[in-house]
Design a protein around this nucleic acid. Structure first.
Lengths: 149, 149
DNA sequence: ATTCTTGCAAATCATTTGCACTTTA
DNA sequence: TAAAGTGCAAATGATTTGCAAGAAT
């Protein structure tokens, strides 16, 4: 489940005091798998916590990333996005509509089975896979031809 | 070869007027596979062109990316890096020393053989693969244990 | 002479920092 | 009441934009 209680329990487990702000931010991330930016999180959580500051959003995100409860993902330069789903998965960004999709490999299949060209003496800790292309929406399919210029 | 003449010829071929600034920027990228930031390029090219402005570096990079002569790569958030090598390859960043390595798959092996979890009706245009871990340098290997905290 | 290219200065956007205030243990 | 957490305002860093001056066709 993904109740607020669960989110609080996880925060406690990782040694983060579940203040109202932190709880709201983390719970928002857990219930909205939309890879939000700090700004998006701020706008959303502010609705229930009008006194919330952007600084607190940044502080909390930094803390959660350090505690490995949240992952920073890079989909395009210049802004970081956040994801509370720590299972291994990649991302796909539609070049037309801009939507970002999660790519979950089927059970038992690693996201990247092996990294071609990585020498044996390198120690791999994490993989970021981000693909770009066109999603199946009609408008986006139509844009494929237009992009061939 | 990677002579200045070659760089100029490529710029001509893609319809970019090879001004001294553009030529110097593009040639720097072609001869320094170090994934430089705009700032790094600026500092380097400025040595031979003291009047060069950072704006011109950004303008030129944007133009070269549009013309697909250069690729924007994202290795960590907050800054874009540039790469004139358009062959398919990934990157590996050492979490200890910060060095970025290219990952060239052996001949005939695709960088990512298939993307697990990508539905058939998505059209794939490009893949960015960025790995993190520890490189084989002694100091970096030693840092692996320290990181287990 | 018109268009392209450059470069300065100012603007913008995401993020961080310094510090004072508030809350909590 | 000491420590932790929050939030405002200012600072920073990367990039973009507006615009005037210079170079090229």
């Amino acid at each position: 489940m993904t109740t607020r209680e669960d989110s609080i329990a996880i925060l406690r487990k990782i040694g983060v005091t579940p203040s109202p702000q932190r709880t709201a931010i983390y719970h928002f991330l857990r219930t909205h798998a939309i890879h939000p930016t700090a700004e998006t999180i701020f706008a959303a959580v502010r609705l229930e916590q009008p006194s919330l500051s952007l600084t607190t959003v940044y502080n909390t995100l930094k803390l959660l990333v350090e505690k490995r409860a949240v992952r920073e993902i890079i989909i395009e330069g210049s802004e970081l996005r956040y994801d509370a789903d720590m299972t291994e998965h990649g991302h796909f960004k539609c070049l037309h509509c801009g939507d970002v999709y999660d790519l979950f490999p089927p059970d038992g299949v690693p996201l990247v089975p092996s990294v071609p060209g990585l020498p044996d003496d390198f120690v791999l800790k994490e993989i970021q896979l981000c693909c770009r292309g066109y999603c199946p929406k009609d408008a986006c399919r139509a844009a494929i031809c237009a992009a061939r210029n």
